[in-house]
Nucleic acid binder design. Sequence first.
DNA 1: TAGCACAGAACAAATGATTGTGCCAAACGT
DNA 2: ACGTTTGGCACAATCATTTGTTCTGTGCTA
Lengths: 331, 331
Amino acid sequence: MSIKRIQQITGFSYSTISRVLNGKAQEFRISDKTRQAIFKAAESLNYRPNILARSLRLKRTYTIGLIVPDIKNPFFGELASRIEKLLREQGYSTILCNTNEIPENEEFYLKVLVDRQVDGIIIAPIHTKEWDAMEHIRRERSIVLIDRIFYETDIPWVTSANEQAADEVTSELIAIGYPRIAYLGGTAETYINTMRFSGYRKALERHSLSVDERIVFFEGYSPEAGEEMMATLLEREPDTRAVFCVNNLVFIGAMKVVQKHEIETGRSIMMAAFDIDRYCEIFKRPLLCARQDQEKLAANAVALLIEGIRNTVGPDRHLIVPVCVGRHRIR
Amino acid sequence: MSIKRIQQITGFSYSTISRVLNGKAQEFRISDKTRQAIFKAAESLNYRPNILARSLRLKRTYTIGLIVPDIKNPFFGELASRIEKLLREQGYSTILCNTNEIPENEEFYLKVLVDRQVDGIIIAPIHTKEWDAMEHIRRERSIVLIDRIFYETDIPWVTSANEQAADEVTSELIAIGYPRIAYLGGTAETYINTMRFSGYRKALERHSLSVDERIVFFEGYSPEAGEEMMATLLEREPDTRAVFCVNNLVFIGAMKVVQKHEIETGRSIMMAAFDIDRYCEIFKRPLLCARQDQEKLAANAVALLIEGIRNTVGPDRHLIVPVCVGRHRIR
DNA sequence: TAGCACAGAACAAATGATTGTGCCAAACGT
DNA sequence: ACGTTTGGCACAATCATTTGTTCTGTGCTA
């Protein structure tokens, strides 16, 4: 009832007020006197437009949905932080949807976001289960896949050079004297795991080594999964010397077991993982780390999303961001 | 135009359709035949109510705003994850607002959330700067402070027993032989830092020790702040034996410096901090940790918020959740 | 002086729901 | 037979905007 109040005070009609308040005074040749009066009234009433009514009329909510599998994971925390910031700068609010790696939640959230008429969706999907739903959504609104993608889809996406980075990490491990490398992976059939494992395998094969399934695990992306995989690994193969963890959380879980094992046996294990740069310098041990470029991931995802919203999609709707592979040792 | 389609198909009026679809058929004595017909039409059209229109009319958006200072921090990541889950279970969507510890962002977000007519706000405020704004918001909608609070306000809040936990940690450090404990704190004038430092001081005083300002720092809550404080500390007081970090991020930053220092000097430093339980077991060193009960924090915040929304506020609008203090050593 | 251009602003439809009130017939009671 | 209840539903207002169309005066020209 707020524009109505201005109407009552100034006596001008809704349309005139609306136009003035939206900066269209010039365009609709509204006199300066009128403009001033309306601005004054709006100011004195502390007028704030009703976003719901506006969105209803305009069919644009300036809201976007961000679906991530695990916001507790600092990787997604930082990604969310960057995306939310970029979107805010463009005038959008972000609805946070945390699926917890549960497909049903993903399905649910996609429906909720459509119901809420978000202008766009950025999603790091769990796997391909909701592909159809997303293709369907894509017809009516902007949607961008991030991090975890469907390689074959036409939906815009941005991800890291996972395969190549995993290959590099593995090659480096081999080069520094670890031909037998255990792989602690995420859930099978999931994009990230598939690509990183593929890189791992390719590196081995290039060095005429083959994948030993006894030291390969696909249990999940959580610390608990990491702990379990590492425990099983060391039980079966106590003389393991090198381990490649699919992500930071698996690494954390694995490290619990590793530390204990190293103390008990006196033998040290070489660890490598994705996105553990935050932890690298707090360990008194060498580590091998593949560091995703979150800034580029976020920036490109948001750019693609906005392009989709504005219907100005460029030719490059699929982006692969380079990953930085590095070795670390204190000092 | 969706309910209109159902109208066209079934011939029933808007009111009847709306009532049936909202499960008020009984209440308004609508015949079973009518009900079935409307349901069938809705189903076949794949009808989804327009949430904007509904919210506009009902003045309820089923949306809540969550304002946190740093979603990259796994502590807030987990808190957000829990809160978002609980709210989802109650039918609410969560708008994520990450202030990045910047007061201007907090001010901005509070306005945005009010403009968006959220039903409620859960906020871990930066400090008391926006207190007035929140008191103002409180008149019209539900708002709950979490983690960082204003002790004196009537606004509902839930936080941890920070002072007591810091006291316990400090006492324990003294008890195990560290009378001289450095304090690496967050931003001065901020609730968390004030309470934890107060606990630290009280413990010292109880043991007839006094605060030595040369080993007390209030630089911030980030890893960078932790690194800087620790570096300065060790430069000035190289024989420091025990350090209490105000939070997990400061701990991470400090550890970088500590590890290097320990290698160089051969002397070990006893570390204590809040919310480092995730890291405890991945270090081959004893640690002292105060672990906040995120489950209770989140559950109580959401409960208070819902009470506020439903106007069923109970007597206990201010809750202090116990903190678990524990010592850790591998094995 | 009729006709026209144009500045300036009002009118009213449309967005998609919810809800208080009103209407009509059938059933019911006495 | 007449008044009252009740079942079953429609009408129309309302929520706060935006926007295409229309209206009303000027001042100017032919």
